Computed example of a mutant assay.
Amino acid sequence: MGRLLWGKVTGTMFLAMGIAAASGCSFDAKDARAPSARKPRTVSVQTATMRFQDAVAEYDMTGCESHQPGTCWEQMLAVIKPARELRKAMHTDKSVNADAYRSAYALIEKMERGIAVGKDRRALEYGNGDDLGAIAPPTNRPAVFGSAHELNDWLDEHPVK
């Protein structure tokens, strides 16, 4: 009777291990770390501010002089990435009241709405190069670049300690 029971237990264990292996279940010591250890580290507001202001300065040096649609998308992405990092850093900053960054959040949100278009759009885009004026969809460049400069000014007026 002992052998029969031992055989059933062993068989059940092999069956369970086979099912676990087939379903992709495994144990890794890296997975056993505490959840906080796996969380990506957020940079400080001061570091994020410097990165954002550097991106705006880089845009100011290289610029985007072309009025042709689609020629400034890379610059838009280069400015929004550090703005997102800045928003995340501000969100995790517990040293100030949540309202302290209200204006900065509004400007970053305006930039996000400009990026949400999914491309660099200009008023010239739907014609043959002629300015279409009021019938053309608006450009999203001021929403991204204009708001970035406003945020840059706001950061200068409200230095991070």
Rank of each mutant, 00 (worst) to 15 (best):
111 M>D: 04
153 D>K: 11
26 S>V: 04
27 F>C: 02
119 K>R: 15
105 Y>V: 07
22 A>Q: 06
120 D>S: 07
93 D>K: 03
18 G>Y: 04
126 Y>I: 02
101 Y>R: 13
18 G>C: 04
37 A>N: 01
147 S>K: 07
131 D>K: 03
75 Q>E: 06
64 C>H: 07
160 V>G: 03
144 V>M: 02
111 M>S: 04
154 W>Q: 00
94 K>V: 14
90 M>D: 00
19 I>Q: 02
145 F>L: 14
68 Q>S: 11
94 K>F: 09
8 K>W: 13
125 E>R: 01
127 G>Q: 00
62 T>W: 08
24 G>V: 13
32 A>H: 03
157 E>Q: 14
133 G>W: 10
78 A>L: 06
81 K>W: 12
84 R>H: 11
112 E>A: 08
60 D>E: 12
43 V>D: 11
161 K>N: 12
108 I>A: 03
135 I>H: 01
1 M>D: 09
38 R>Q: 14
55 A>V: 05
150 E>L: 14
76 M>N: 01
75 Q>D: 05
33 R>M: 10
137 P>K: 13
43 V>N: 07
141 R>S: 06
6 W>N: 11
125 E>K: 00
102 R>V: 08
19 I>E: 07
129 G>A: 08
114 G>S: 06
161 K>V: 10
30 K>I: 01
78 A>R: 12
74 E>S: 14
36 S>R: 06
58 E>D: 15
83 A>H: 01
126 Y>A: 09
29 A>N: 03
42 T>M: 04
61 M>P: 00
150 E>S: 12
9 V>A: 11
63 G>H: 02
59 Y>L: 13
139 T>Y: 02
120 D>C: 10
1 M>A: 11
48 A>N: 04
75 Q>W: 01
26 S>C: 02
129 G>D: 09
147 S>N: 09
59 Y>G: 00
127 G>K: 02
124 L>A: 05
79 V>I: 15
156 D>Y: 04
66 S>R: 05
150 E>R: 11
86 L>A: 03
144 V>R: 01
138 P>D: 13
134 A>T: 05
154 W>K: 00
125 E>T: 00
35 P>I: 13
56 V>C: 08
82 P>K: 08
57 A>R: 14
4 L>M: 12
13 M>C: 11
48 A>I: 09
65 E>A: 13
7 G>F: 10
4 L>A: 14
107 L>D: 06
8 K>M: 15
96 V>L: 15
47 T>E: 15
123 A>D: 02
112 E>M: 05
92 T>R: 12
46 Q>D: 12
98 A>H: 07
51 R>N: 13
127 G>M: 02
40 P>V: 11
62 T>K: 14
144 V>Y: 04
69 P>A: 10
85 E>M: 09
24 G>F: 07
40 P>A: 13
91 H>T: 15
111 M>N: 01
110 K>Y: 06
95 S>P: 00
7 G>Q: 09
45 V>W: 01
140 N>P: 00
57 A>W: 05
119 K>T: 12
73 W>N: 10
55 A>M: 01
111 M>V: 04
27 F>I: 12
75 Q>M: 09
4 L>W: 11
68 Q>D: 12
103 S>A: 12
134 A>C: 02
6 W>Y: 07
35 P>G: 01
157 E>S: 13
81 K>P: 00
57 A>Y: 07
12 T>N: 06
10 T>C: 05
31 D>H: 10
